[in-house]
């Protein structure tokens, strides 16, 4: 039997358990990549790996977390492959990882946000995703899991293989970085006027 082949029972199990999360996989992929083609490629690769590994999935665990763990590894592999080919364009144009002890500039423009809820809702989905794509990879993954997928911090920590404390600090830092990105868009669109003293 060819090792890459699967049995009808494995196929049925995959369809029953993983298929319903297809939209989660594609939605996450769209936030990680820069084009719909790249998003499809990443989602396809993730589903293919899940199909091959369906026997390793344990029934009483979270299928969404399992699929996103596969996607995370696949994404890292893609980024590494692209990084090793410098003449080609990067998959998402951002750094692979950001060291947690590094203090990136974030929240520089927080004082611009007078009515944050109102301003946040003025941004359409595409703009928010665009701002997400500009964030470092691990920060972006943290926001994807914790804020978009509403995963418990412990579950997000398991997917990303880091302590819960790291998730907490990344989430806080990531939101501030996202606000900075969105603030730039808001200033460009004339929704905000730059206050004196702000960077």
């Amino acid at each position: 039997m060819n090792a890459s082949m699967i049995s009808p029972n494995q196929a049925a199990r995959f369809k029953r358990l993983a298929w319903p999360f297809m939209s989660v996989v594609l939605r996450t992929s769209e936030c990680l990549t820069r084009s719909s083609d790249q998003a499809e490629d990443l989602a396809q690769e993730t589903m293919l790996k899940a199909l091959r590994a369906i026997d390793s999935y344990q029934d009483d665990t979270d299928m969404r977390a399992w699929l996103l763990t596969i996607m995370r590894r696949t994404h890292i592999d893609c980024l590494r492959a692209v990084r090793n080919r410098p003449l080609q364009l990067s998959l998402d144009g951002t750094a692979l990882d950001l060291p947690d002890n590094e203090d990136p500039p974030s929240g520089r423009l927080d004082e611009q946000w007078e009515e944050p809820e109102e301003l946040m809702d003025r941004f359409d989905d595409e703009t928010v995703i665009e701002a997400m794509r500009a964030l470092p990879n691990d920060i972006r993954w943290t926001l994807l899991l914790v804020d978009i997928e509403q995963m418990a911090q412990a579950d997000a920590a398991a997917v990303l293989g880091v302590p819960v404390g790291t998730i907490k600090s990344r989430a806080h830092r990531g939101r501030a970085m996202l606000r900075d990105q969105l603030c730039q868009f808001a200033l460009q669109r004339g929704w905000l006027r730059k206050k004196e003293g702000a960077e």
Binding site: M22, S23, L26, R27, E30, C31, D110, W113, P116, E117, M120, D121, F123, D125, V128, I129, L143, V146, D147, I148, E149, Q150, H172, R175, A176, L178, R179
Partner: peptide, 19 residues
Amino acid sequence: LDRATSTRLAKLARRPVNT
């Protein structure tokens, strides 16, 4: 600010995707 950001991000989960 954090809550407003988190709430806006959560809305992305309701974005329809063509699978």
